[in-house]
Design a protein around this nucleic acid. Sequence first.
DNA 1: CGATTAAAAGCTAACTGTTAGCTTTTGGTA
DNA 2: TACCAAAAGCTAACAGTTAGCTTTTAATCG
Lengths: 195, 195
Amino acid sequence: MTEPSGRRERKKAATRQKIADTALRLFLERGYDEVGIRDIAAEADVAVTTVFSHFASKEALVFEQDSNFEENLRGAVEGREPEEPLIPALRGEIQALVRHCTADSVAPVWRMIDGSPALREYEESMRLRHAESLAAAMAADTGLGRTPTACRAIARFVVDAYSVAREAADPEAAVDEVFRMIEAAWAAASPAVSR
Amino acid sequence: MTEPSGRRERKKAATRQKIADTALRLFLERGYDEVGIRDIAAEADVAVTTVFSHFASKEALVFEQDSNFEENLRGAVEGREPEEPLIPALRGEIQALVRHCTADSVAPVWRMIDGSPALREYEESMRLRHAESLAAAMAADTGLGRTPTACRAIARFVVDAYSVAREAADPEAAVDEVFRMIEAAWAAASPAVSR
DNA sequence: CGATTAAAAGCTAACTGTTAGCTTTTGGTA
DNA sequence: TACCAAAAGCTAACAGTTAGCTTTTAATCG
């Protein structure tokens, strides 16, 4: 029960990275559906079980870096200045995320995702988990003065904004458009307005 | 290319029904994860391939009757009186659907669904398809005067209302609460208000 | 240093949902 | 009756995933 001095963790991380890199490369070369787990394992020179000890599923191989989506959203709620309004903070976060996924450097990856129903489904259900986490963060902020139901609804709306924007012709404008709607919904959920 | 006189279709429907009934019974008896497709096929006395010729997946066996969710939503948009406002019509539909799934008679089924991550995911992705269909119906109604992006967003919000309400303590009140927010969002998407 | 422990990786073999390919049965029609 | 096409069946496989067990190896301790 002492501090591990690093090499083990580094090797583990290296293995993980090698698997992710190999998988992504093969996916882009041959197409997601054309690459099996056994192919990835062979090419990365690891056992199949090792792949699954690092990634929960085949789809997870594609979204390995996006684990900070959730954190970022929660952070936008928890780490904002006192009296800084919530919705614009969230809009900023979503705007940044949308900008990030529409960047040219990752375009092939997103084209692949859009082309695979399995990956689209996986992404949506991932976003749902993010929405639940966001709702929890909002519900924990007592200063907001909204019901848990309103928080859950807004959290979903925010994640919807991301999804809708990604398939819009002008994603950044779409984020603004949807957030104007969310702002209104948020205002309508204020206790002063309801009834 | 003549009119089939019925028996064939009746037998087919009977087979389908028998499979669905058997599956649901086994699921409720033993739990969703404890029942395999091969078990269902054996108990219903059909081949495994027959199960899949009637249902696209194991999860679909659970949601066999819910195919009208989509129709109902589309119908609420397309089949309403001229000048009848959209949002209340949709609220009525969602309210009816929520009431339907919280009825005592189907409670065990929904308890089962809530207990299985696979089923919850499947349901959510089903609802997403419904939202897309709803968005298309809304976009087709030229009288609404909203952008396609706004339609897509509202369609998702409406489906969110259903999901949020289902997990709320008082589902029907939650529908009303979320729809007050949706109403505001819809108003904010009006061309007159944007900017 | 050598002994020990536990994490990480490997191997094999299976399970489960799903599909392809082909044959048999059966209702409907000419 | 002969024939057609839909429905159902059978076998075998594929692909993702997991369980069970063994081997390697980084880190710790006597």
